[in-house]
């Protein structure tokens, strides 16, 4: 099914090119019409990898930088800003204990204790959310990205119970009134479905880096974990890194450089 979908997309892209009708017309009606509408040519050179991963240089993170990355992510993906315990979060921050609760750290080095650690979906190698989803609305792509089909999700929230990292959010209400800066290039969600970080698959398809990586000023290193020559593998060779809750057995693709 996956390969046929890919074939279809390729075919669609080629036919769009062939027709010379590169403009995606219906997007032109969106309110923020001043934005550049992507053309089929923008998808000619997508970023590709066997296993996308991220390394987080935690030494460089404080609340300010977490906020910068979170804003970039939440603006790109139309993530609503809802205060309280029913909020939606794709990219957020936590202290050491919240990020690594199974470490039960005592007498932590002061700088380690006071850093703010970015939190996002770990894009696991063995994602529990994919295993428990009863409709395959959550699925894992060949390049390791764990994605969601917002239109297939029935809102049973089994994935939220399954995820050991609290990376998933549910739309308890219509999120649209809570979207601060509307981005017409990414779909908004409806109430009653789950959502989470998608490693900016929509930007990778256009050959661009994820929004948080761009905003981080080099503090987030993104690349192919299966390529020994990639930037992420180089930095992982050089520095000590932790993954969150390795005992949960899900194999996170997000590494924390300490």
């Amino acid at each position: 099914m996956k390969s046929s979908r890919r074939k279809f997309l390729k075919l669609a892209a080629v036919s769009a090119l062939g027709l010379g009708a590169g403009r995606i017309g219906f997007l032109g009606d969106a309110p923020a019409g001043a934005m550049d509408i992507p053309t089929a040519a923008d998808y000619n050179a997508p970023m590709e990898a066997k296993h996308w991963g991220m390394a987080i240089d935690t030494t460089r993170f404080n609340q300010e930088l977490v906020d910068v990355c979170a804003t970039a992510c939440h603006t790109e993906h139309n993530v609503p800003t809802i205060p309280g315990k029913k909020g939606v979060k794709w990219f957020f921050g936590g202290n050491f204990e919240e990020t690594f609760p199974t470490e039960h750290g005592h007498y932590l080095a002061e700088d380690v204790e006071h850093r703010v650690y970015p939190l996002l979906c770990n894009q696991c190698e063995e994602p529990m959310c994919v295993r428990v989803c009863p409709t395959q609305a959550t699925f894992k792509r060949a390049d390791g990205i764990v994605m969601m089909d917002f239109h297939r999700c029935i809102g049973c929230r089994y994935c939220m119970a399954g995820c050991p990292f609290g990376a998933r959010s549910f739309n308890f209400q219509d999120p649209r009134p809570f979207i601060k800066n509307f981005n017409p290039l990414f779909p908004t969600r409806t109430r009653g479905v789950v959502e989470k970080c998608n490693f900016c698959s929509e930007l990778l398809a256009m050959g661009k880096m994820p929004a948080c990586v761009e905003a981080s000023g080099g503090a987030l290193i993104f690349g192919d974990l299966d390529d020994p020559e990639s930037d992420i593998r180089k930095v992982l060779r050089e520095r000590f890194a932790l993954r969150r809750k390795p005992d949960a057995g899900t194999g996170p693709s997000v590494y924390y450089l300490m």
Binding site: V132, R152, I154, G155, C156, N171, T190, G192, V194
Partner: peptide
């Protein structure tokens, strides 16, 4: 009554997923 999108509940049957215990 617990589902966020109950009108889509037949997706469990349209997309049968044996690895999900809910199925």
């Amino acid at each position: 009554v617990d589902l966020g999108q109950p009108q889509r509940m037949l997706n469990i049957i349209f997309h049968p997923t044996p690895n999900s215990v809910l199925f």
